[in-house]
Amino acid sequence: MIYSLLVLSSPFSGHSSRRAAQFAHCVTARGHTIHRVFFLDAGTLASAANSVSAQDEESPVTGWAELADQHGIELAICITSALKHGMLDQVEADRHERASPTIDAAFTVSGLGQLVDAYASSDRLITFGG
């Protein structure tokens, strides 16, 4: 079965974002496909490359980056939400004259059309953090 995920909440508030990453790991382990993970609103903070976690806590980026590395899962962050939350790739950092990008390389800045494509192309779309 083809799944897509919509992640709405910040990884720094509650557990929905981490749950979503765990869910994606389980889905792929069972032989299903994740078409895309789309991050919207505060969900885009999952891409924060410069976030520093406590020593005994895993960085929120790690779980997602593993999914992208191991399974080639596309991690798309909504550009409007991303800019609002200070999550910039190199192109946006240049465009808005910021010193450096702030997102992890596993994530792609994308438009809301990719959310529509995600559910239009998937059997299931699961929302986390709404």
């Binding site: 919207l40 909504c78 409007t80 809301l112 059309g113 959310l115 529509v116 239009a120």
Partner: peptide, 9 residues
């Protein structure tokens, strides 16, 4: 925003 994008597509 999601509603408008859905309608647009």
């Amino acid at each position: 925003d999601a509603a408008l994008a859905s309608a647009a597509f």
